[in-house]
Amino acid sequence: MTECNKIILLTATTLFPLASLCHGACVEVDSDTEAVANQGFKLGCISCKMRGEVPATAAVNWYFKASDDDEFSHLYSYEDLIGDVIDPRFYERLDWNGSKQTKDLQDGSIYILNVTYNDTGTYQCRFNRVLMYPNYEFQTNASKTIIINVVPRLTRGMASIFSEVMMYVSIIGLQFWLVVEMVYCYRKIAAAGEEALRESAAEYLAIASESKDNCAGVQVAE
């Protein structure tokens, strides 16, 4: 593969991400930790299955400890495609927001409606997963702890703003470099094509001239 072909391929993969190939990928992203009062909030909890080729089932349980509580209370349970709100403080305010239409759960997120200041506290998300091998079953457990703070309005730290700005600068810089490289490759290919045409024309003229000389020699000989 030539250098220009590599650049064109890199451009295509940069500008048009292969979403179809990444659709089934699992990435453990940390949950947001700042909720806004009187708005909805997603409590994220992802536990990726390490052996993707092995069938499995999983149950997810959430626990909550308010800022003035001493112990965790059972908040929510999801198993066999059925969710159950257990803590009365969250009745009619909580819904499942994780993996859909599958018992092989990897996303155990939940969504809280109409967040109140009383929702400030520590949340625990616990995965109980059973891997089903041909001759036996293997149980694994995973847990994540999330500390949520409820605020009047959403704030952003300088680190978050700086990271976002740098991300956009990097994307723009990369795309500009790719455009420059593509223009260079186009000119290089065009120049090579013109050179090939000139060589073909010169070769044709040389053949024609040689044929004319041969014909003239034949006539003199006669």
Rank of each mutant, 00 (worst) to 15 (best):
F72P: 06
V27F: 13
L9I: 13
S211V: 13
T2R: 10
C185T: 01
V130P: 00
V150P: 01
F162V: 10
D87W: 03
E203H: 15
L9Y: 08
A37P: 01
E164Q: 09
P88R: 06
S170C: 04
E79H: 13
I46N: 02
S77V: 05
A192T: 11
N61V: 12
T33A: 06
L113W: 10
I189L: 09
A66E: 12
Y123K: 01
R153V: 11
I46K: 01
T102W: 01
E28W: 03
G193S: 12
A142I: 01
E199R: 13
Q124G: 05
D80I: 04
N214R: 10
G173W: 03
V179I: 13
Y63T: 05
L154P: 02
V180T: 11
N141F: 07
S209Y: 08
K103T: 13
S47T: 04
D68P: 03
Y91G: 08
C215K: 05
D213W: 11
A190V: 09
L205E: 10
V54S: 05
V130D: 01
L81P: 01
G98C: 00
D80R: 12
L15H: 06
V180L: 14
M132N: 14
V27H: 12
S209D: 14
G108N: 00
E195G: 07
T116V: 11
V218R: 03
R89D: 09
Q139E: 15
V85Q: 00
S73Q: 09
T33N: 08
S99Y: 06
A221N: 11
S211C: 06
N38L: 09
R89A: 12
K212T: 05
S31D: 02
Y184D: 06
V183I: 13
L18S: 13
N5V: 05
A196Q: 10
G173S: 12
N118P: 03
N149D: 10
I207Y: 06
W177E: 08
M182Y: 07
Y133V: 06
G173N: 06
N135I: 11
C185F: 02
M50S: 09
V218T: 07
Y168R: 15
K65R: 15
R51Q: 06
A191M: 10
A202M: 07
D84R: 13
Y111M: 04
Q175W: 12
G24P: 07
